[in-house]
């Protein structure tokens, strides 16, 4: 469905992405993992045809995509309907007076007849029915994210690009999103730096390193077991700290009693 070939991107001389290459088959789900600033959002914007790759190519269904090529009516219409991006900051994609109008925005552009039914359907699916008359800007972060998601789904895209969709969600909504995505038939590419959540979102991981290159592409479980790779991607670190414990964990050879022990400990970031 998508193919990325030798793709690089710079912001004013600073590299943001270097020589990336991967493919995604129709219906496949993958997560993009990477520390802050390694280029996740930039990659998703390129895949949504919003910014041009500096070098290399991005093909959607065999068609090279750049902002320039999307100026042509036919390709643009198909691409914008089939590909949806949930921005990291959902504020930037919500500009209609009510949540209902927001969800109807896409279907109206397509001139669909059953706009109201679609709004009701997707509002129900994403749990924002009770918010329909509200103004999107007045909602909480998580509610905005669900509204934006409903607005994207209402045009039934084939490829969903999600930029840290769980960042503003509480645990219950996060659980809901995990189940919801699992039930979608769409191709989904989702960025996150939440390691414990990642394997629930997709079986495949694309890991961007701090050098802005693709550090790993493959089954997520294997990446998560590779401590060296985790540290290299700056998604985990090793540091000394103090533990209060009641029972010694099997891998630590501490006496079996309550106490405080300082030791080195392998850590992943989940925040």
């Amino acid at each position: 469905m998508i193919a990325v070939e030798n793709l690089s991107h710079h912001y004013g001389g600073q590299p943001t992405l270097l020589d990336l290459g991967f493919r995604l088959a129709p219906g496949e789900k993958a997560v993009i993992l990477g520390a802050n600033g390694c280029g996740k959002s930039t990659l998703l914007k390129i895949l949504d045809g919003l910014i041009a790759p500096g070098a290399g190519r991005y093909l959607y269904d065999g068609e090279a995509i750049t902002p320039l090529r999307l100026k042509a009516g036919g390709l643009r219409r198909r691409f914008r309907q089939e590909v949806g991006l949930l921005f990291q900051n959902p504020d930037v994609m919500l500009f209609n007076p009510t949540v209902a109008d927001e969800i109807a925005f896409g279907p109206r552009q397509l001139g669909l007849a059953d706009v109201d039914d679609r709004v009701a359907h997707w509002a129900g699916k994403t749990g924002v029915t009770h918010l329909l008359p509200r103004a999107p800007f007045s909602l909480s972060g998580g509610e905005k994210q669900k509204t934006a998601l409903a607005a994207l789904l209402a045009v039934e895209p084939k490829l969903l690009l999600l930029d840290e969709p769980t960042a503003a969600l509480d645990p219950r909504s996060t659980g809901w999103l995990v189940d919801f995505l699992a039930g979608l038939k769409q191709t989904v590419l989702c960025s996150t730096h939440n390691l414990s959540l990642a394997p629930e979102l997709a079986p495949r991981a694309l890991v961007l390193g701090e050098d802005h290159r693709l550090l790993y592409d493959g089954p997520i479980e294997r990446f998560l077991m590779d401590e060296t790779a985790l540290v290299q991607a700056n998604l985990a670190h090793i540091h000394s700290h103090r533990h209060t414990y009641f029972r010694a964990p099997a891998h630590h050879h501490h006496p079996l009693k309550k106490g405080v022990v300082e030791h080195r400990h392998f850590h992943t970031h989940d925040w």
Binding site: K45, D48, G49, L50, I51, R76, R77, R80, Q81, G84, L85, F87, N89, D91, V92, M93, L94, F95, N96, P97, F105, G106, Q109, L110, A151, L152, V155
Partner: peptide
């Protein structure tokens, strides 16, 4: 990003009203 946000959701070139609202 606001500009890109409108862009990414505009299946047809964004109309005056949508631009104004955004």
């Amino acid at each position: 990003d606001f500009r890109l946000g409108l862009h990414s959701r505009a299946i047809r070139p964004a109309g005056l009203k949508a631009r104004y609202r955004a």
